[in-house]
Design a protein around this nucleic acid. Structure first.
Length: 479
RNA sequence: UCCUCCUUAGCUCAGUUGGUUAGAGCAUCUGACUGUUAAUCAGGGGGUCGUUGGUUCAAGUCCAACAGGAGGAGCCA
């Protein structure tokens, strides 16, 4: 019975006058006592279901509130009204689920994103979030398609790990201790020998190290899974639980790595544009409306779809860290002391304002920065000949900041060991990581891409909490 | 975690130098109208002014702490 329904998107696209159909969905508005705007999540465009005057009981019509779930059976007709090609004239309307108009929080009007975040269980029913999550789904699919088509192996890195040696941020502990009664050893410290895993465990902050193990046997692999950081970050681009894609490729150097990352980003953007044209148009329009509220100089020059097309059509700018420092140091912005953190010497870590200047003011397109000072990067990155930089690369996107971070990995055992010693990282704990260099080591490289940041970039949503169904961040695990 | 700003009706917001009974639009309810596109028109209901404490004859308005939110920063993806 239920599987005989036709999706609204299909009715709107293919429905021919005279066809009998069953549609099901939720009432968005009920106008003029006869026009139901019906939405079933297949598209943001509503199907107009017509309840001819006098055909239905008043008691039924009064229940057609915003949010009510209905089934309508009827005939497709060419619409005499403006705004839609076809509509459905109902022979029968059944209420599947009532919605009390006085209590239902969503109204046929604009709501703020902040308000909708507080009712995240209902926000899927708005056009904006329906579009965002359809696009998110397509982007996830495009990611798998890109790698699988290239022969990459999809690797499931563990969610629970024991290694916290990587230093990629604060971890969430995993334990089954009774927290009111934690076992202690003779020194009064927590006795993890008593814990489930017999040692301290935590949620993964990255699948990279495990991906390297697989890459040095399978060739090219990628991970795509949830990642957890217990950082107290309160920003529009951080989450405590987010999804990350981490490809890792044997026999790749830094340049190969940059080529792949750039092709990858362009591929998934193109995929979203070609497979979600209606949603992208809706999101572009939404963003344009939002920008109208801003002062002129803060508005972006391009619309969302234009901006994405521009990214696809142009090469990313590739410059070394050293060149970036020169550009920043000699910029009028720096000379006029407009940076909160002035740029005067080689070796500083770039601040958000510096990255934004390079991407949004100077180059006005995505920028790949590479060959960073080794002091500001992780232990596993390959040391360059100059003795002071490592083969790292970050991709910076306009409006989002760092979207990709990657590097060629240090495959030489001696260099890796000396770097670990300098940074105080235990060789014992990471014996398995070093074993890869002991037996048949090869040059290899990889990168990490923040999935939500990518979805933000594609959908134009400015807050990362609005591109994941149920965002987790400090003081928030509702729903 | 730090800095700045915000919190008034279901939602979005006004509310003057502290001074009677706190307003508007939308939503909701009632009625009218009926080919409407967030329908339109008329009328009604709806508020512990984020919480706690303080100053004052008097606090939505001033002060403090706390909570939540926004923007920026740090950490990063």
């Amino acid at each position: 019975m239920f599987n005989k329904r036709t999706e609204v998107a299909k009715v709107l696209n293919d429905g021919q006058p005279g066809e009998e159909m069953i549609v099901m969905g939720w009432v968005r508005t009920f106008r003029n006592n006869q026009f139901i705007a019906l939405n079933d999540g297949s598209t943001n465009i509503n199907l107009q279901v017509v309840a001819p005057l006098g055909k239905f009981e008043d008691a039924l019509l009064r229940r057609l509130n915003t949010g009510t779930a209905i089934r309508a059976t009827g005939k497709v007709v060419a619409s005499p009204g403006k705004g839609q090609r076809v509509e459905l004239v109902a022979d029968q309307i059944d209420i599947l689920g009532d919605s009390d108009a006085e209590k239902y929080p969503l109204q046929p009007k604009k709501h703020s994103l902040e308000f909708l975040r507080e009712i995240a269980h209902l926000r899927f029913r708005t056009n904006t979030f329906a579009s965002v999550f359809r696009v998110r789904s397509i982007v996830a699919y495009a990611i798998h398609k890109f790698f699988v088509d290239k022969g990459f192996v999809y690797l499931h890195a563990p969610i629970i790990t024991a290694s916290d040696a990587e230093g990629a941020g604060e971890t969430f502990h995993v334990t089954n201790f009774d927290l009111a009664n934690v076992p202690k050893d003779e020194h009064g410290k927590v006795d993890f020998k008593e814990d489930f895993f017999g040692r301290s465990a935590n949620l993964t902050v990255s699948g990279q190290l495990e991906a390297e193990l697989a890459a040095t046997a399978l060739g090219n692999v990628y991970t795509f899974g949830p990642t957890f950081r217990a950082e107290n970050s309160n920003t529009a681009r951080h989450l405590a639980e987010f999804w990350m894609i981490e490809p890792e490729m044997a026999f790749y150097d830094l340049e190969d790595n940059m080529d792949l990352a750039e092709a990858f980003i362009k591929y998934i953007i193109r995929y979203a544009l070609t497979h979600c044209p209606d949603d992208m148009a809706f999101l572009a329009n939404r963003l344009a409306e939002e920008e109208k509220q801003k002062p002129q100089q803060e508005r972006s020059e391009m619309g969302l779809v234009e901006k994405l097309q521009f990214v696809i059509d142009n090469n990313f700018e590739r410059i070394t860290y050293t060149e970036a420092i020169d550009i920043l140091k000699n910029s009028n912005h720096n000379k006029k002391k407009k940076f909160q953190y002035p740029v005067n010497e080689w070796g500083i870590d770039l601040q958000s304002e510096h990255e934004r200047y390079l991407v949004e003011k100077h180059f006005k397109k995505p920028v790949i920065l590479y060959n960073y000072p080794k002091e500001i990067k992780a232990f596993y990155m390959r040391q360059n000949e100059d003795g002071r930089t490592v083969a790292a690369m970050d991709i910076l996107a306009p409006g989002i900041g760092e979207i990709v971070g990657g590097s060629q990995r240090e495959e030489r055992l001696d260099q890796l060991q000396s770097r670990m010693k300098e940074m105080g990282i235990s060789e014992e704990e990471l014996f398995w990581y070093l074993d890869i260099r002991r037996f048949g080591t090869v040059p290899h490289a990889g990168f990490g891409l923040g999935f939500e940041r990518m979805v933000q970039f594609i959908t134009g949503m400015t807050n990362i909490r609005d591109v994941i169904p149920f965002p987790r961040y400090p003081k928030n695990v509702e729903f």
